[in-house]
Design a protein around this nucleic acid. Structure first.
Lengths: 284, 284
DNA sequence: CACAATTACGAGGGTCGTAAAAATG
DNA sequence: CATTTTTACGACCCTCGTAATTGTG
């Protein structure tokens, strides 16, 4: 059997032209490379080079060997990449969610149940999530609606209620409840990574300009420093506390309430059984 | 870069099941193989086996690696085969001929002109010869007819005349010339390796039973020991002498005369130029 | 004379086999 | 107790680098 090493060296020679230049590029001495190619020729029982004392060029057989070697070496490299990627995918549990809130509860739960796994979470549109689930990109996803069909297993597990966060001086700060359209048209402070809620906001408050902040801290500072409306939710307050110096008013539209559904492929249900059991026990 | 060696060993383990059995099959000690797989895992930065102190089985990543390794190893083996085959084809000059006679003259000529080449000659139907020429199986072929078309280079270079070889006691032994049909119906002695002539014989003497001999010596002995008709040709007599105790009578049908044509692919003409020149000089 | 390739030779690293240990059915 | 895997250790081979040789532009 030929050595991959020697094939790589042969490819390098085909690139560089001379043994000396190649040896330098490979961090090898010329004699070593020269002998290595002689060994390769012995193994193949074939002459690969035209040797003219001073000059060395690939002959026709050598050219063919280069072509063949390229395929083998590429495939060997692919092997390494694929094996590592597969191994990584074996050790990672990828979760897709339409909003951040469910992950706050789910992530600790998952990492406690599968301590050897690395948890990867991602936020996407519900549509992309379903596609990713079909392709095996996610072990499970969280959607704001149920999923029909034999191919999937699905159950609701958590509810999130959206609120307006208004400064006390705001004209509507005394209301017991508000609708999206009550605030529509005012500029609103928004966090970037809110997933699905971003779309709800666009739909229900088409006239509003969203002042999107990438970082949580920046948002909080602006909430304190400005008189602009913002959003919070029951889950956000549960994990992050109530915003200071703000009145919190529930939004009465049905779109302001999301019922999150756990969705996985039917085949994956068995492997996720302990997690599913735990979710149902914790959140029911 | 992984070692092909290790991949081969991994494949063997996948076949044999245990390290011990595999080591024996590979003529290796168990410890050596065990360490080799550990090295492979280190190289890949991946765990390939479930180890249970006493037992060792491929895990999922291992299975994937086996699949990938099979492809790489197969391709590496193909490389060796293809390179050797190509190298051999570079050093062999393959001639296809429809009958043996042209080779008697051609073979020495070719081997003198290309002393580093090994000469391979083969006898086939004209149809197969043309196909082989197109596929590159032959550098050139000898046909009993010209070939049209831009893709080929073709010229006639030798003529062969067929004779009946009859015992003096044969009723027709006094004839100055004979036709195939004069003998048709009699059993005839024939040599196996006469290529194209065999077909001519079948066409022109449909009633005759051919007593085919595989070896030249056997034929000669039977020609002497029997009263059966046989064939010779001017070329055969030129190289092998006249048959003893036989009268030789020319066959008058036009099919009993073959005009041999040299045919090569147009692209190959340049490489064969010295040979073509020599043939034209010698045989014209 | 600079440069390219090959040959000669000693040093170092890697792989092998034997021996021993640990664990299982 | 036989079987399987892993660890320990010494021997050997193989490849590497340095140095020297040969040949070319």
């Amino acid at each position: 059997m030929v050595e991959l090493n020697q094939l790589v060296q042969l490819l390098a020679i085909a690139r560089c032209g001379t043994i000396s230049a190649t040896a330098e590029q490979l961090h090898l001495s010329q004699p070593a490379l020269s002998r290595s190619m002689q060994k390769l020729e012995e193994k193949l029982q074939v002459t690969l080079f035209d040797r003219q004392k001073n000059k060395l060029t690939l002959n026709q057989t050598g050219q063919l060997t280069v072509d063949q070697a390229r395929r083998v070496v590429d495939q060997a490299r692919d092997l390494v990449d694929r094996v590592r990627a597969f191994d990584r995918s074996q050790r990672t549990l990828a979760i897709g969610s339409c909003t951040p809130a469910p992950l706050w509860e789910l992530a600790p739960l998952v990492s406690r149940l599968y301590p050897e796994m690395t948890i990867a979470s991602e936020m996407k549109d519900p549509q992309d999530l379903m596609e990713g689930l079909r392709e095996g990109l996610y072990q499970f996803v969280v959607l704001p609606h149920p999923v029909e069909g034999e191919a999937f297993y699905c159950f609701p597990f958590e509810r999130e209620q959206l609120y307006f966060s208004l400064p006390p001086a705001h004209p509507l700060s005394g209301a017991k409840g508000l609708y999206f359209e009550d605030i529509d048209g005012e500029s609103v402070l928004l966090l970037a990574q809110i997933g699905f809620w971003r779309e709800v906001c666009r739909q229900k408050m088409p006239l509003t300009r969203a002042l999107v902040q990438n970082r949580q801290e920046d948002l909080e500072e602006l909430v304190q420093a400005s008189a602009l409306p913002a959003f919070v939710s029951d889950l956000a307050m549960k994990w992050g506390g109530r915003p200071e110096n703000r009145v919190v008013i529930p939004i009465l539209d049905p779109e302001a309430t999301a019922l999150y559904h756990f969705v996985c492929r039917r085949e994956a249900r068995k492997g996720l059984a302990p997690l599913i059991q735990q979710i149902k026990a914790t959140m029911a």
